[in-house]
Design a protein around this nucleic acid. Structure first.
Lengths: 209, 209
DNA sequence: CCTACCGATCGGTAGG
DNA sequence: CCTACCGATCGGTAGG
């Protein structure tokens, strides 16, 4: 279980990592149920049994993909974002970084919410908790601090977090904002709406400019 | 195709309609691939063959569910919403009506975007066009009018439409805003953020109140 | 010859 | 890590 060194000087962990990346791409394109373990193994040039050596079952592979992505998301918080000077700047950094990822990588976020229903209830709940702890909680915390500092309107920060994530969600689909130029514009529009609103009577990002 | 009165005084079309409603509920709970035609037919108390009499295949049943929902959405536009006096009021009516639906019915919207990848490319594209024509286009049009009237900031209304829909999306999952009280608060928060922004320096819905 | 179904089973493929 | 398979179940269709 501990996945110990098999020795022999071979490159261990290589197939496992390749499998996570390859399968992620295939699941993103065709959905969890749209891709079979056979197809994944063929893409990797190994047998199905080889896959089952590294992953207990299909679900286990899926969870590994999601956890791998979550870890990358977590690292975003620990580097750039926390250095933002206030709530707005921290959220701006977060959204910018998310859209700075390659589209296919962003799509894993959609994969997570879309296919979580295919996981066993226990696994789903455990992953849900990890997701909350490593991602949702951080965003909520930024908004909460913003509220207590008076930077953000007094509101329910839990649902506001979901609203913010929801605003990005449609653009996690392939074909949305693939160019860097589109992404930049989109990030700008999302942040403007979230902080300043769409109403023309609301303040603009650069007042008087 | 017209499927009309066959006479004899029997209740025609009953099973077909029941199947659409029952399957919609099951798909919402377990996903398109999580429910078999056998399970659906058993829930209806009929044979699988009976289902296949009314629907060419599983996909055909799915499309019928989505189209049935789209028609209901379309009717929203033709009654209440268009009577809104300006952009903000029309969008407010739209969002309010969407959240006034029972949660399980709202969830069909999530089902549509979530499981569209399981449809054949041709079918998917055709449904995508209908979805755009009956729903997306209408929202975009409201925003567009708002922009040209100066009620809404100058922005890309296509992506703004997706942003607005995205804000609602997380609450189309079961367990989100099930009570009427939650729904009311949520609608309020979504509309406030969309029009006025979360920033405390932005205008409030009732200035000075 | 129509409609609205049923009991039984098909060929093919899934995860393991 | 592979070859060789399995038990179960899938969506779909036969004749009547």
């Amino acid at each position: 279980m501990k996945n110990r060194n098999v020795g022999h000087g071979r490159k261990d962990g290589t197939l496992k990592q390749r499998a996570i990346e390859t399968a992620a791409g295939m699941f993103v394109d065709a959905g969890y149920n749209g891709i079979s373990m056979r197809e994944i193994s063929e893409s990797l040039g190994v047998s199905k049994a080889a896959l089952y050596y590294h992953f207990k079952d299909k679900q286990d592979l899926m969870v590994a993909i999601l956890e791998s992505y979550l870890e990358r998301m977590e690292s975003l918080f620990e580097s750039d974002i926390s250095q933002g000077r206030n709530c707005r700047e921290q959220i701006t950094r977060l959204v910018t970084l998310i859209f700075a990822q390659p589209p296919q990588q962003r799509a894993v976020m959609r994969l997570a919410s879309q296919e979580m229903g295919n996981l066993d209830p226990e696994i789903r709940e455990e992953f849900g908790r990890t997701y909350h702890r490593k991602f949702i909680r951080r965003i909520k915390s930024i908004l909460q601090t913003g509220v207590s500092r008076g930077e953000i309107k007094l509101m329910d920060t839990a649902s506001a977090t979901w609203v913010l994530l929801g605003m990005m969600y449609p653009f996690f689909y392939p074909g949305s904002a693939n160019s860097e130029r589109d992404a930049t514009r989109l990030v700008d529009q999302i942040l403007t709406i979230f902080f300043d609103g769409a109403d023309s009577r609301a303040r603009r990002q650069d007042p008087g400019a």
